[in-house]
Simulated scan of single mutants.
Amino acid sequence: MTHVDAHATLPRSLTRPPVELELVIPAFNERERLPATVAGALRFLARRPWSSAVVVVDNNSVDGTPDCLDRFAASAMGRSVGLHVIGCGDRGKGAAVRRGIETSAARYVGYADADNATPIETLDPVMALLRAGHGAVIASRHAPGAHLTVEQPRLRRGGGAVFRALARLTLPDVADTQCGFKFFPGPLAREIVHDCHVDGFAFDVELLARVVKAGHDVVEVPVDWTDQEGSTFSARRDGLRSMTDLLRISLTR
Rank of each mutant, 00 (worst) to 15 (best):
R210A: 15
P153W: 07
G160E: 04
L148I: 12
P144Q: 11
L188N: 04
L171M: 07
I120N: 01
A202R: 09
N116E: 13
I192W: 06
V218K: 07
D176F: 01
L129Y: 05
R154T: 14
G230S: 06
D173Y: 06
R154I: 13
P222T: 10
H147K: 14
L129C: 06
G110I: 05
V219W: 00
V205A: 09
D195W: 01
D195S: 14
V221P: 05
A209H: 04
Q152H: 14
T226M: 04
A214Y: 01
E229Q: 13
H197K: 12
A189I: 02
V211F: 07
H194E: 14
C196Y: 03
E121I: 03
G230P: 07
V218P: 11
H134E: 03
P125R: 08
S234C: 07
L171A: 09
R156P: 00
V223H: 08
A214H: 12
R157E: 11
Q152M: 13
V174E: 03
M127Y: 07
L169G: 02
E229Y: 06
L130E: 11
R141A: 14
T118I: 14
H147L: 14
D124F: 00
A132Q: 12
P222K: 07
P222R: 10
V219I: 14
A167V: 09
R141W: 02
L169V: 04
D204G: 06
A114D: 11
R190N: 12
D227A: 15
I138A: 13
